[in-house]
Amino acid sequence: NQASVVANQLIPIQTALTLVMMRSEVVTPVGIPAEDIPRLVSMQVNRAVPLGTTLMPDMVKGYA
């Protein structure tokens, strides 16, 4: 099973992502693949992302 990127904390809207905000976890449905974590650093979320939420491509500006 492929690991996805999951929020390690509440990430407020417009926040630039850092490594400490994300973790990898095998979840359903599958979100952004964990191997993309380095690419996500400094990208902004376009909505508030609660703790434990799987990051989906449409939540990160410039990802999809």
Rank of each mutant, 00 (worst) to 15 (best):
T53P: 00
A16D: 09
A16F: 13
V45H: 02
T54N: 00
T15R: 07
L10P: 11
A7M: 04
V30H: 13
V41I: 14
I11G: 01
Q2I: 10
Y63K: 01
P29S: 04
V41F: 05
V6D: 01
G52T: 00
A16S: 14
V6P: 01
R23C: 06
A34R: 05
Q14H: 15
V20S: 15
T18Q: 10
V30F: 13
E35W: 11
D36Y: 12
P38M: 12
I32G: 00
A48Y: 12
R39M: 14
S42Q: 15
N1T: 13
I13Y: 14
V20A: 14
M56K: 08
A64E: 15
R23A: 06
Q44G: 03
V45G: 01
M59P: 00
P29D: 05
I11E: 00
V27K: 08
M59G: 03
T53R: 11
N46I: 14
R47I: 11
Q44R: 14
V60C: 03
P50F: 08
L55S: 02
G52H: 07
Y63V: 04
T15Y: 06
A48I: 12
A64F: 12
N1F: 14
L40E: 00
R39P: 02
R23F: 04
S4K: 02
S42V: 04
T28D: 13
G31E: 01
Q9W: 07
P50R: 12
V6K: 03
D58K: 09
G62L: 07
M21H: 08
V30A: 13
S42I: 04
V26S: 08
S4M: 01
A64Q: 15
T15K: 07
T54A: 06
L17K: 00
A48W: 12
V49Y: 03
S24K: 13
L51N: 14
A16G: 08
I37M: 13
P57E: 07
I32T: 02
Q2T: 14
P33R: 08
P29Q: 05
P33N: 08
V41N: 03
V26F: 07
I37S: 03
K61I: 15
P29I: 05
E25D: 11
M21N: 07
V5D: 02
R47S: 10
Q9M: 15
I13T: 13
A48N: 15
G52Y: 04
D36G: 05
L51R: 12
K61E: 14
I37A: 07
M59Q: 03
V49N: 03
I13D: 15
S42A: 11
I13H: 11
R23Q: 05
M43C: 07
V30N: 13
A3F: 13
V60T: 02
L19P: 09
I11W: 02
L19N: 07
M21E: 02
P57C: 06
D58R: 08
P38W: 12
A3N: 07
D58H: 10
A3D: 05
P57H: 07
S24T: 10
T15H: 07
A3W: 12
R39E: 08
A3R: 11
V60M: 05
V30W: 11
A7V: 07
P29T: 05
P50I: 06
R47C: 07
L19M: 12
A3C: 08
P12A: 10
Q14W: 15
G31D: 01
V30E: 11
V30T: 12
T54I: 09
L10T: 12
E35S: 15
L17P: 01
E25C: 08
N8W: 04
R47L: 07
M59S: 05
N46A: 09
P33Q: 06
M21I: 03
G52R: 03
V49M: 04
P38S: 10
A48V: 13
M43F: 10
M21S: 04
P33A: 08
P57R: 07
P29Y: 04
V27R: 15
V27N: 02
V41C: 06
K61M: 15
A34K: 05
V5W: 03
K61Y: 15
I37D: 00
D58L: 07
S24P: 13
Q14S: 14
M59T: 05
V26Y: 13
L51C: 09
T54E: 01
V6N: 01
V5L: 02
R39W: 10
T15P: 01
V6C: 04
D36C: 09
P12Q: 09
T54P: 05
L19I: 12
V5Y: 02
R39V: 11
V49S: 02
A7R: 01
A16Q: 13
R39I: 12
V20Q: 13
T15E: 08
I11D: 01
L10R: 13
G52Q: 02
L55Y: 02
L10C: 09
V5E: 01
A7N: 01
R23E: 04
T53K: 08
N8S: 11
K61V: 15
V60R: 00
V49I: 11
G31V: 00
Q9S: 09
P57K: 10
S4W: 03
I32Y: 01
P57Q: 06
R47A: 10
V6Q: 03
T28P: 01
P12G: 06
A48F: 11
V45E: 01
T54F: 02
E25K: 14
V27A: 06
V20C: 07
S24G: 12
M43Q: 08
M56R: 09
M59R: 03
V30S: 12
L19H: 09
Y63N: 03
A7Y: 02
T18W: 04
A16M: 15
V30Y: 12
Y63A: 03
M43T: 04
